[in-house]
């Protein structure tokens, strides 16, 4: 297993946000984490990437305990991230954004006499080519279209050859066709590179079309886990989350 989570717990002021969640993601697998607002998805996610320290439980990355490590340490061990609202460096070009990830990976951040232009440029272009952004390498990140920014984030996340990708609502704010394209790209990269992908998502079309497995959270607890078809048919999941399906077209 690339990622194994055992009995993760977190409470805020007495309220149990995440209450004993266990899950695992295999190399090359896409696992979707879904559930109603406030179910504990974000809390769970933030404990995996190091933003939050769990009250209990363990997070294992390829067998190594990374519980409670700072985000930048987690990254060094091979966990890439994309954010719900894209986070890139707006005052830099697309290529410079990726170069910075490579510089950090090579531990060259404190070089203050050299020029960034000479650092890792070819490798950055390779990564951009993989996500189809090489043609826009010299544009400023601050002026890119939203869908393109998501691709840049993916390229940044791939810069340290990650074993695990954590994607928080990867398709939020994108048009349906863009969503499909981004998820297909992600799936291809994950399969080719044997990268495990864990993502949260509100768009049920995306979840049911692209996830290999789905985990459903409600009030901090895991209430269902399995293949998309099984989860969709689960009566408890329908009651607390999916509803009749009229508003997302994947129901009855």
């Amino acid at each position: 297993m690339t990622l194994a989570v055992e009995g993760l717990r977190k409470a805020f002021g007495g309220v149990k946000a995440v209450d004993g969640v266990s899950l695992s993601v295999a190399a090359g697998e896409l696992l979707a984490l879904i559930g109603p607002n406030g179910a504990g998805k974000s809390t769970c996610f933030n404990m995996l990437n190091g933003q939050l320290r769990p009250d209990g439980g363990r997070v294992l990355l390829e067998g190594r305990d990374i519980t409670g490590m700072a985000p930048r340490k987690v990254w060094r061990l091979g966990v890439g991230r994309t954010f719900q609202i894209t986070a890139t460096f707006a005052s830099m070009t697309v290529r410079e954004n990726v170069q910075m990830a490579l510089v950090s990976h090579a531990r060259g951040t404190f070089d203050f006499l050299g020029a960034l232009a000479d650092r890792h440029a070819p490798r950055a272009m390779e990564l951009l080519a993989r996500v189809g952004m090489d043609a826009q390498a010299d544009r400023a990140c601050g002026v890119l279209a939203y869908g393109d920014l998501k691709r840049v984030e993916l390229a940044i996340a791939l810069a340290n050859d990650p074993r695990l990708l954590l994607m928080d609502e990867p398709t939020a704010g994108m048009a349906p066709a863009e969503r499909v394209a981004l998820m297909e790209l992600t799936a291809r990269i994950a399969r080719e590179g044997r990268i495990a992908v864990l993502f949260t998502e509100h768009d049920m079309d995306v979840v049911f079309a692209h996830a290999d497995r789905i985990v459903v959270l409600d009030r901090g607890k895991l209430i269902a886990e399995g293949a998309p078809a099984d989860v969709r048919a689960d009566p408890q999941v329908r009651a607390v989350y999916l509803g009749t399906g009229h508003t997302h077209g994947v129901g009855a």
Partner: peptide, 15 residues
């Protein structure tokens, strides 16, 4: 500049 533009992203790439 990376830390100024997006502290979240900077931290997420190990800075």
């Amino acid at each position: 500049r990376a830390g100024r533009d997006s502290p979240l992203r900077a931290e997420a790439i190990g800075m």
